[in-house]
Write a protein that binds this DNA or RNA. Structure first.
Lengths: 134, 134
DNA sequence: ATGCAACTTAAAGTCGACTTTAGGTCAAGT
DNA sequence: ACTTGACCTAAAGTCGACTTTAAGTTGCAT
């Protein structure tokens, strides 16, 4: 298939496909005249790249994950990436819960609502509490 | 507190704080000469901004979420953001599971391993199966 | 054989989120 | 009074991920 077909199939502009090739994320299997030729499995790879982008991997990271040279290095990289995702999933979950509360909350400034802040685990400690029991 | 203290307390460079002020994400309560003066609660707000950034909100989005003018508009925005996060959490979970498998998988090309692709729900359908039962 | 839509390249431009630079001001310690 | 380090502003620069532009080439339908 030529670049236009890949573009149509994926929704990505041809310029993006050329850019991805230049960066080493995809390859064409040859040319017809000047024109790049891609085979079917590019579509799967592009879907994978799109998913990677959605979960905030950089193009360089994605390219590295495709590189199967050092198998252990790759394994470690994948693991590290999984850990990173795990951390982010937790933060996003916390934030989502906070936002759900804020959207339902009657307080006029969500962002000072103690419940909201507690959900986000921001500033739980009351500072300046006068005359603390000693 | 002056900008240097805020910077020390948060780890953010002063230039970033000025930039955030310029963009309307934070305010100083006044000046001493030229120098901005911030009060304590800036720290909480900056922590919130940092969390927002971590979960991929843009500065404009964060600023909008702080704006409590149209209470319903704000509510709708928060809800929409929560939905968006939910969607992303699901994608990230899928990707994390895929990566965990890939890191443990014996196959040399993780990215063509059918199990991996199935976890990511990419390309489940075998195309070109010859002589299909009619 | 001709036309032209779809391709090609290299280089410049854009956008968000900052950072860096250049040149200036000033509060506070000696 | 003087120095100096921390602040100030406006403007330019950087980085990643593309997009746009300008100028050229070519497969294919007529």
């Amino acid at each position: 298939m030529d670049i236009g077909e890949v573009s149509k199939a994926t929704g990505l502009p041809a310029s993006t496909l050329r850019y991805y090739e230049e960066k080493g994320l995809i390859q064409s299997y040859g040319r017809k005249g000047l024109r790049r030729l891609f085979n079917q499995k590019i579509l799967e790879r592009l879907a994978l790249i799109a998913l990677g982008r959605r979960v905030d991997f950089s193009l360089d990271e994605i390219r590295d994950m495709f590189n199967t040279d050092g198998p252990d290095i790759n394994r470690a990289l994948l693991s590290a990436k999984a850990d990173e995702l795990d951390k982010k999933i937790k933060e996003m979950t916390k934030m989502r819960n906070g936002l759900r509360h804020a959207a339902a909350c009657s307080a006029p400034n969500h962002f000072e609502c103690p419940k909201f802040l507690r959900i986000l685990k921001l500033a739980g400690k009351k500072r300046l509490r006068q005359r603390n029991k000693l």
